[in-house]
Simulated assay, not measured.
Amino acid sequence: MDGKGKAAMTIEGNWLAGAMTKDFPDTAYKVVPLPEGPGGKGTMVFTNCWGVAAKSRHQTAAVDLINHLTSDSSQLEFAKAVGVMPAKTTLLEKYVAQNPESKAWADGTAYAQRPVSAPGMRQVMAEFDTSLAQLADSEPAKLLADLQKNGESVLGGSGR
């Protein structure tokens, strides 16, 4: 979304909430679920993770930090400060109570798929992202066919 009122619709994740609050606080928008397709409801979700090196000299302190970062209070504070949903699904009800405008994103976690992270897919998705930027001058069917072909090439199957 460009925040300038020139887009009728965009497909974005919940990080949009924080960006809109920070960069375009006066732009009105509404979050709704994607329309259901032939395969049912669909959306994507991802999160981040923290890890501790097995040979870290500061393993106990690192684990303590991770426990703090993943605590309910920290997760809800991150949600408020950054504008993203908490990574813990156990907090979604509380998050929606505090952010009712984000209900569609929270509800989507029940049927969301994670991004494909197979080796080689990063390049396929980067090419697709680049082609999406040219959508006004392209045919959507060709963009999707290319994505399918390139994805199958990397994943080694017909996808059917």
Rank of each mutant, 00 (worst) to 15 (best):
L91F: 07
K4F: 10
Q59L: 11
N14S: 14
A8D: 14
P115T: 00
D72I: 03
G156E: 03
G108L: 07
R160F: 13
Q59S: 12
S74D: 10
A17G: 02
W50V: 00
L135Y: 12
A118Y: 07
F78Q: 10
R57A: 13
G3I: 00
E77H: 03
N67L: 09
Q134A: 14
K149A: 15
S102H: 15
G51N: 06
Y111R: 04
A53C: 10
S131I: 04
Q123G: 04
A141N: 12
D107V: 02
G3A: 05
G40K: 11
L135P: 08
A97P: 02
L135F: 12
T130P: 04
V124Y: 06
D64P: 03
F46P: 05
Q123H: 05
L155D: 06
K94H: 04
K149T: 13
M121L: 11
G151L: 03
C49G: 11
I66P: 03
Q148K: 14
T27M: 12
E152T: 01
V82E: 00
A28M: 01
D26M: 10
A136Q: 15
K41F: 09
G83F: 10
V84I: 13
L76P: 10
G157N: 14
V32R: 10
A118K: 10
P38S: 13
I11H: 07
V84E: 04
S158M: 08
V31E: 00
E93D: 14
S117G: 15
A126K: 12
F46E: 07
S102Y: 04
S73E: 14
H68Y: 12
M44S: 08
G3M: 08
T43W: 01
I66C: 04
G5L: 04
Q59P: 02
A81P: 03
V32N: 06
Y111M: 06
P38D: 13
A106V: 05
N14T: 00
Y29Q: 10
A79E: 08
G42H: 13
A81H: 11
Q75C: 02
D146I: 09
L76K: 10
D129L: 11
K41W: 03
S131Y: 00
G151Y: 06
P38E: 12
N99D: 06
Y29N: 06
L65N: 06
R160I: 08
G151I: 03
R122T: 11
P38I: 09
M1R: 01
I11D: 02
M121E: 07
V45Q: 01
A54H: 00
K80V: 08
L132R: 06
V52H: 01
W50L: 05
S102W: 09
G120H: 07
P119H: 06
M44V: 01
G156H: 01
L155N: 07
